[in-house]
């Protein structure tokens, strides 16, 4: 009788704890599954994949295991760290804005969850890179991200300059075309001027300016100077010559 009396509360507690445990584990599993099903914030981390693939390089069929020299692995690790820098910058840039949007309810909770997961991942990733760097050469962990940071900003500024310089051809072509139109219009004006006495009053004046400019410059491209002199920018050209002397 005593044992039966004890059995009832024990069963009761057992069932209670068991159902709670089941519920909690189910709930967590479902939450994890939901989080995993969310799209990742970033594209696949290619340099990371390359680095880890190099570490675990499998021999091609019929060959012995290839040896990856440390220098290649170090280069791959540095590429990975550089990509991490871009990601850290992207995360930092997005954080404040996204925080405000979530507070206002403008974006869904999903987005915020994806973001937080990306943030955690990148933190883990940074720790991992430092660990790997220290394994290659003691103390590299302290400076690898400095180096990677410079690599990232160097790549950015080179791209900007390249983008600007890439327009040079289009601009030159445009200018050549415009210059030849100005030239032909000017020639037409000149030609008409000789026919029409009314228009001739302005033309000779222009051509004298042009002539004086071209003699002053004495350049090989007198044609262009001629047009410059006749064009709307004649004054500007002179002013610039003066200016340059002043600045030198």
């Amino acid at each position: 009788m005593f044992w039966v009396g004890l059995l009832v509360p024990i069963t009761y507690i057992g069932v209670l704890v068991g159902s709670l445990a089941t519920f909690s584990s189910l709930y967590r599993k479902r939450k994890a599954a939901k989080a995993a099903s969310l799209a990742p914030w970033f594209d696949p981390h290619i340099p990371r994949n390359v680095y880890l693939s190099l570490l675990h390089l499998e021999p091609a069929p019929g060959q012995k295991s290839p040896v990856v020299p440390d220098s290649v692995l170090r280069a791959a690790l540095l590429r990975r760290a550089t990509e991490d820098i871009y990601r850290v910058l992207a995360i930092r840039g997005a954080k404040a804005a996204l925080g405000i949007l979530v507070q206002r309810g403008s974006v869904g909770d999903d987005l915020w969850q994806r973001f937080q997961r990306a943030e955690q991942e990148i933190e883990e990733e940074l720790r991992d890179v430092v660990k790997e760097a220290n394994a290659f050469s003691p103390g590299w962990g302290a400076s690898i991200f400095q180096t990677a940071n410079e690599m990232a900003s160097n790549a950015i500024i080179r791209k900007r300059v390249d983008d600007i310089q890439a327009q040079a051809k289009a601009e030159t072509d445009w200018w050549e075309k415009k210059r030849s139109t100005i030239q032909s219009e000017f020639m037409k004006e000149l030609y008409e001027g000789s026919e029409d006495p009314a228009a001739s009053s302005s033309t000779p004046q222009k051509s004298t300016t042009a002539a004086s400019t071209s003699t002053a410059q004495g350049g090989s491209d007198e044609d262009t100077v001629f047009v410059e002199g006749g064009g709307p920018a004649a004054q500007g050209a002179k002013a610039s010559a003066k200016k340059k002397k002043g600045k030198k």
């Binding site: 994949n49 390359v50 880890l52 693939s53 190099l54 390089l57 290649v72 883990e124």
Partner: peptide
Amino acid sequence: MGDSFTQLPLQI
């Protein structure tokens, strides 16, 4: 995700 990665068929 932490330790997983996509194995690429790299050659050296």
